[in-house]
Simulated scan of single mutants.
Amino acid sequence: MSSNIKDVARHAAVSISTVSRVMNMPDKVAKETRDKVLNAIRELNYMPNALARGLIFKRTKSLGVLIPDISNMFYSEMLHGMEAAAHDQNYNLILCNTDNNKTRMMESLSVLKEKQIDGLIFTSEPIYPDYHELFLKLQIPIVLAATHSLEYDLPSVKVNDEQASYDATEYLIKNGHRQIGMICGSITDQVTAMPRLQGFLRALKVHQMEADMEKLVEFGSYKFEDGYHAMHKLLEKYPDITAVFAAGDERALGAISYLHEKGKSVPEDISVIGFDNLRLSQMSIPKLTTVGQPLYEIGYLAVEKLDHLIQKEHVPELRTYVDHQIVERQSVKMRNHESV
């Protein structure tokens, strides 16, 4: 029969709270008492679990992470950052893939509640009113990563998508392009797709260029095949196009694939810029110029912010916007040498 925390307390002649303090905050316990407890743990071969460690402090040192699509390469680097921060803060991560399905998300939240997680990181999706109601019922700290909410006071970490898209479009303009199209995300996505569309259109208007959304923009999902089909439609209705801003690297690579099949050279005939700076963007031919967002940093900061909330410490910034950058590679060509 395995030993439990009560057995350790009895064997060391101390209270359960003292055993818990030794496991959670050993520097707060006198050396003599700490040694007695550690000896009892060794002699009884006690393996403390998360629930035992949380008996006194009501913490399991576990964090839940909701991912809408684990197959999306976007999340691997962000999860890498989360895992690093969790390790530094002595947390374990429990990852749930919702597969962009509301029912699965609700089931995942139920499982995480049973696991008595200390906090939750919610990624990428918009925060709808019914989602917010579910969050309130959890009664735990929640941080948003690569998404945010302007309606609810939920701490978040992300890039400024509107400004990043403005900068991507202006980069094409400054490279001499005047006929620019966009492959955008779903029109229902208010978190990333719409801000990126707004940034694109703002750049065109600032530089006094055509901003006809019907002609210049194709909508779709984030996957490779969506970029492929969107490029087909965009080229059909805008054959004079010289550059494309694809609001996602997978979309950009899908667009490049379609152009290659149609005998269009990138960047000689049409330049393409992506968004995200996924590892895959360095593996394409040509290598993809893209908007780099620091996904590792987003993941790391989200866990750090969540830890501050769990510790009931002051979080100075509700909505954190991290810096983006234009990562120049080989898929954008200067159309002329005229400064725009």
Score class of each variant (00 low, 15 high):
T192W: 00
A193S: 13
A193H: 06
M194N: 13
P195R: 10
P195N: 08
R196N: 14
R196H: 12
R196G: 13
G199D: 05
G199W: 04
R202S: 07
A203Y: 04
A203G: 13
A203N: 04
K205G: 00
K205R: 14
M209Q: 14
M209L: 15
M209V: 12
A211M: 07
M213V: 11
M213T: 11
K215M: 08
L216D: 02
V217E: 03
F219E: 13
F219Q: 08
G220E: 07
G220M: 06
S221C: 02
S221T: 13
Y222S: 09
E225K: 11
G227C: 09
G227Q: 10
G227H: 12
Y228A: 01
H229C: 00
A230F: 11
A230I: 06
M231W: 10
M231A: 15
M231K: 08
M231T: 12
H232P: 01
H232N: 08
L234C: 12
L235Y: 15
E236L: 13
K237R: 14
Y238H: 08
Y238G: 00
D240S: 15
T242Q: 03
A243P: 11
A247C: 14
G248T: 09
G248D: 09
G248K: 03
D249T: 13
D249M: 06
D249E: 11
R251L: 15
A252C: 10
A252H: 11
L253P: 03
G254Q: 10
I256C: 04
I256M: 15
S257G: 03
Y258S: 03
Y258V: 13
Y258G: 06
L259P: 04
H260C: 00
H260W: 14
K262L: 02
K264H: 09
S265C: 04
S265L: 02
V266D: 05
E268Q: 14
D269M: 01
D269G: 02
D269I: 03
D269S: 07
S271F: 13
I273W: 08
I273G: 01
I273N: 02
G274T: 10
G274F: 10
